[in-house]
Design a binder for these strands. Structure first.
Length: 201
DNA sequence: CGGCCGATCCACT
DNA sequence: GTGGATCGGCCGA
């Protein structure tokens, strides 16, 4: 067990962290018994009060976004389009509302349970390639917003997987056209399914 | 209090 | 590649 410690999440460079999270393991044990998880293969950085794409832009504080102002290492989960839970990791110090959206994983642990949660029978490259799907197969819902990732419900581990820099694609973020010039920032990082797959984790 | 819409996904063509 | 599902959060009145 090599759970990532709280200090990791306090780093003040959210874009660096978003890229560094590629290759880390994300695990959940929602019912306290059964483990599910996989390797993070896609992330997006949301850089706080100066980032027009962030829920915390212009220091906006609401009941929903309040957990983004916690110190790094908490989960921020919110509902999108009325039906999809989206899982984010809060980073940086208290009152600096940075967060990283986990957009895709490469499933490795608890495959049967994850297939069951998704209502699928086999793993394809489409299985865990969107943020709504990731939360669904891991059993994450909005009730988990605000919990600490150093506990045993949702946590990350570093097992030493490092992708080559050339294997990590950097692009603009998805679905943030409303953020105008900030929609052009290179804050999305992803490893293609076929690349993660060839390592045969 | 009413109305708009989103850090999406899937079925269907 | 397109449109419908579906609802909490947010804003303006």
């Amino acid at each position: 067990m090599s759970k990532i410690p709280i200090q990791y999440y306090l780093n003040d460079d959210v874009v660096y962290l978003a890229k560094d999270l590629i290759g880390k393991y994300l695990f959940t044990k929602i019912d306290g018994k059964r483990l599910t998880g996989g390797i993070i293969t896609e992330t997006e950085a949301y850089a706080g009060i100066t980032d027009k794409a962030s829920h915390a832009y212009n220091n906006r504080r609401t009941k929903r976004t309040e957990v983004m102002y916690n110190k790094g290492g908490d989960a921020y989960v919110y509902l999108c389009y009325g039906m999809h839970a989206l899982f984010n990791i809060v980073t940086n110090k208290k009152d600096i509302p940075h967060a990283i959206l986990i957009r895709a994983i490469h499933p490795t642990e608890g495959i049967e349970l994850m297939l069951q949660r998704a209502g699928k029978t086999k793993i394809t490259k489409e299985f865990a390639n969107g943020p709504g799907k990731v939360a669904k197969i891991l059993g994450i819902t909005t009730i988990h917003s605000g919990i600490e990732l150093t506990n045993n419900t949702i946590w990350l581990e570093d097992k030493g997987i490092v992708f080559n820099n050339s294997e990590i694609e950097t692009t603009t973020r998805i679905g943030v056209d409303y953020a105008k010039e900030d929609a052009l920032l290179p804050y999305r990082f992803k490893v293609d399914f076929s690349i993660a797959n060839k390592y045969n984790f």
